[in-house]
């Protein structure tokens, strides 16, 4: 999977790249409009992450250009502007998702994965992690072949974990993933805790190993025990 990150802030581009490379992606960066223009003309990418404000141009133009070249490439906008008009315009010209800065790398990663699943296999793919199988199209979860009933939030939580295996996830990033930005985090942290407790219990009941580990002061990590 090849991903292009168009972002002028060097440090942020680096962080995104590091995070994606660890997950097995081939990642390239472009810091300017010209750079990005050149790269999308020369190479083919599965997904492009675009910052809207670039020193020498506008991210929207890159998306338009890209959509003319290869329409199937997934596009995720990352922007500092939290304006409705920008989001609508982005969707209109063919982007798939919009993330407002500052965002969580884990969230970006989850969105990229979900986007690629939809783009590449039309959603007809299963996500496997050891004995856990998730079928995104029907939103069903199997552990050791047994159907496991999860609530909507528990399912979202599991998918978020599976998109970020072996990664320490902060409570805030989990809360924002589940409820969006508008929730008071004092409550949401408690709610995250209760959802994780339930998810863990349901997975254990079906004979899965205990993959959810809590990290003191930070949050949780989904990995091999």
């Amino acid at each position: 999977m090849k991903v292009l990150v168009v972002e002028d802030e060097q440090g942020l581009a680096e962080s995104i790249t590091d995070y994606m490379v660890k997950d097995g992606y081939i990642c390239e960066t472009a810091a300017t409009f010209r750079d990005a223009e050149e790269k999308i003309h020369l190479y083919t990418y599965d997904c492009v992450i675009v910052d809207l404000t670039l020193p020498d141009g506008n991210g929207f133009q890159i998306i338009e250009m890209l959509k003319r070249l290869i329409a199937t490439t997934g596009v995720i906008i990352i922007s500092a502007r939290n304006a409705l008009e920008d989001k609508l315009k982005g969707l209109e010209i063919g982007s798939d998702d919009y993330l407002t800065k500052p965002f969580h790398l884990s969230e970006l990663n989850a969105r990229v994965k979900s986007l690629l699943r939809r783009r590449q296999f039309g959603g007809h793919t299963e996500i496997r992690f050891q004995e856990i199988v998730v079928v995104p199209q029907t939103r069903k979860v199997f552990v050791n072949g047994q159907l496991t009933m999860l609530s909507r939030k528990e399912y979202d939580l599991l998918l978020y974990f599976l998109s970020n295996v072996d990664v320490a996830l902060t409570k805030a990033s989990i809360a924002e993933h589940l409820w969006g930005d508008n929730i008071d985090s004092a409550d949401s942290f408690d709610m995250v805790y209760s959802h994780i407790k339930n998810l863990r219990r349901k997975l254990l009941e079906k004979g899965a190993a205990d993959y959810v580990q809590s990290i003191y002061g930070i949050g949780y990590k989904f990995s091999q025990p």
Binding site: G11, L12, S15, Y19, T100, K101, P102, T170
Partner: peptide, 16 residues
């Protein structure tokens, strides 16, 4: 927002 995004990203990397 951009430097804040940078701080967030670096913190996220740090906790790994």
């Amino acid at each position: 927002q951009t430097p804040l995004a940078l701080i967030n990203a670096k913190v996220e990397q740090l906790i790994q």
